[in-house]
Design a protein around this nucleic acid. Structure first.
Lengths: 228, 228
DNA sequence: CTCATGTCGATACACTGTATTGCTTCGCTG
DNA sequence: CAGCGAAGCAATACAGTGTATCGACATGAG
């Protein structure tokens, strides 16, 4: 369980605080992924023994929580447009940009309840944008539905990015990239619709794909918020 | 060393193939989560040295992939209703039930491209259900949007289940469960909409919440598939 | 100056995924 | 049947992980 409160700082001004620890962890994760984040490496980057960290953080999971909340600060929008739909669109777009900047965020998105101050502020702002447009339950459902879409879509997008990077090939060629296995599968004729999709489908870029799906979901939300 | 414990010549207890390995890994993950799956423990459960596994599996990630594809078999529907919407609904429902049976699936959902035979079959069946209802790009967008929602919604649901289990408290009390911290945050007045949602919101059960959000998304998809 | 306290670095432990090594046993050849 | 090559498999080894514990040291109080 995460405690977001900063512990009382040591008597003397320490060269170390949560923020520096989290920043170091994020830097490591940004280039190397989540698996590159080890307490030893974080500590090393701060010229400190590994055990020092436990004065500020009680477990590695908590460090991950702190990292997530830290990047949620990048998601939090500055202004608040009065158009709720525009507001949700911007929120989704900012989440996407942040996830592209910090790919490891995709591994954590939706993984555990996000209760840090920045995450709460983000939730507050989206809730506020929808406040009064419908009864509370409907508003909650709207927020959760949109957020579920965002989580799922971004996880898939990052998964694809990584797969392409790993094989060095474009999505157009993924069936070859993933070895003869998938291609053989498709050629068995057991998956005609899938084969057609792979061979005949145009691959739209990830951004418009994300935006289009989002628009659909927002259409659905709009229909529920403002019943005809 | 007596004469009597002589023969048992084969004593070869294990045919040991991928299926047995994957089954053992799934059993471990089912009770203990993904982190309870270690190659040593899997091997131990099969009365085998850890290195034996590398004859059938080349990395732990691959084992995870195999586990995912194995449970995708539980998602694959038997019959194919001719109503595409019913088909998608059933697919989502089966995915949810499977994820509730194997909570670790939520940790893997959307994490990497799913190219196993069962996953391909599932994709094939949903694609086939929508085939011909619109141009290929629209159909793809529909499938991906629905699947993104499913991934995100199930991840959140499992995250909540775990949080409740960890604290032993119902969602109604989560603000207390997560310590005075969140409550204090809410009471600062900086999150009025959120506070209202927490205090005044009725907590609908997860199943109808999932189904309702899904219905909205399906509404949106329907509007795109069958333009007025 | 002495003593208590509490911070911090080092050490330690149990465990992880995986590479390597060396044995053992089987089937084939001469 | 003797011997040998090959192949499968167990054990060992290594570098790394998260975290508990312990001992030294510095700093404050009396």
């Amino acid at each position: 369980m995460t405690v977001w409160d900063r512990p009382e700082p040591p008597t003397r001004p320490a060269p170390l605080d949560r923020e520096r620890i989290v920043a170091a962890a994020i830097a490591l994760a940004d280039e190397g992924g989540l698996e590159a984040v080890s307490l030893r490496k974080v500590a090393a980057q701060l010229d400190v023994g590994p055990m020092r960290l436990y004065g500020y953080i009680s477990t590695k999971e908590e460090l991950f929580d702190l990292m997530v909340d830290e990047v949620y600060a990048e998601i939090l929008p500055e202004g608040r447009p009065d158009d709720w739909r525009e507001m949700l669109r911007i929120h989704a777009e900012r989440t996407r940009r942040t996830t592209l900047r910090h790919e490891w965020l995709a591994d954590l998105l939706g993984g555990r309840p996000t209760l840090g101050p920045n995450a709460l502020a983000v939730t507050e702002s989206t809730l506020a944008a929808l406040d009064g447009l419908a009864d509370l339950d409907t508003v909650m459902r709207a927020v959760e539905t949109v957020s579920a879409y965002i989580t799922g879509a971004l996880r898939r997008e990052i998964a694809n990015v990584r797969a392409e990077r790993a094989t060095g090939l474009s999505k157009r060629d993924w069936q070859r990239a993933y070895g003869p296995h998938v291609k053989r599968m498709l050629d068995t004729g057991r998956f005609p619709a899938l084969a057609k999709a792979v061979y005949d489908g145009t691959d739209v870029d990830a951004e418009t794909s994300f935006a289009t799906g989002l628009d659909w979901v927002l259409d659905a939300v709009a229909a529920k918020l403002t019943p005809a």
